[in-house]
Simulated scan of single mutants.
Amino acid sequence: MATPPARTPDYRTAAKTIDHSLLRPELTLQEVADGCALAARYDVASVCVRPADVPLAVEALAGTDVAVGSVIAFPHGSTLTSVKVAEARALVEAGATELDMVVNIGWLRSGLVDRVRDEIAAVVAAADGHLVKVILENAYLDHDQKVAAYRAVEEAGADYVKTSTGFAPGGATLEDVALMRATVSERVKVKCAGGVRTLDALLEMREAGADRSGATATAAILDEYERRFGR
């Protein structure tokens, strides 16, 4: 068994970096329940489930230290602001404590940054103190659009900037995570998603500045940690 490098987190810290993703549209309810059981077994930070699955996840994870999260305007971000606000309220009422919202990507690419900021602020208000993570879908944005978006997220009062949905042509990159971390203040945390499938990828993203990583390969990642470094 290897000794972890000096900057490698301990097992629990590594596990609490992961939001276990259960968002694929074809998942059965049994597969969602099994995914929640896996998340509890590995004691990750949260599950991120489809909106209709929030009550199931809340029941499955009662009494654990795993939060229940869900998504707003996923994966395209183009619903009306009023619908995003209604989704946020409904998800909180159903028991979700973490909300991952997709921004209106077309607005961002059109230069309507103030409109994007105001929409995020409306969702933050509707979330009523629960965590809001804002998905920018970096694969569709140029450098200046990314920086403007990250700043808008912070101005709107959200808790996290997030790289991607995992359903676009590209996912998380180390460069984007580093740019996010360099752009927002320490108050705002960074989440990466899309392509984090190995322990090495998880650790590299964390080193670049990610506080959370969305993952479907949770078991493989944490089993590899235990094989290398123990618990």
Rank of each mutant, 00 (worst) to 15 (best):
E137I: 01
E204D: 13
D200K: 05
G157E: 03
V134K: 01
K133M: 03
T198S: 13
P169W: 10
H143S: 12
A178S: 05
A148N: 05
A156T: 08
T173W: 06
E186V: 04
E137N: 04
G194N: 08
R181S: 00
K162G: 15
N138G: 14
I135C: 07
E175I: 07
S185R: 03
V161N: 00
C192I: 01
A149M: 10
V184K: 09
F167G: 07
A156E: 03
A152L: 10
G166I: 11
K189D: 00
T163I: 08
T173P: 02
D211V: 01
P169F: 11
N138W: 10
G157D: 09
L202Y: 11
L199Q: 01
K191V: 02
V153A: 13
V184N: 01
E186A: 06
L179R: 14
V190R: 04
V196N: 03
A201G: 14
G129R: 14
E175H: 12
R206A: 05
D176E: 09
F167E: 15
V184T: 05
M180A: 07
R181N: 00
G170D: 13
M180I: 07
T163N: 05
E175D: 09
D144W: 14
D200H: 08
G129D: 03
R197N: 04
S164V: 01
K191F: 12
L199G: 05
G195T: 07
A182R: 12
T183V: 04
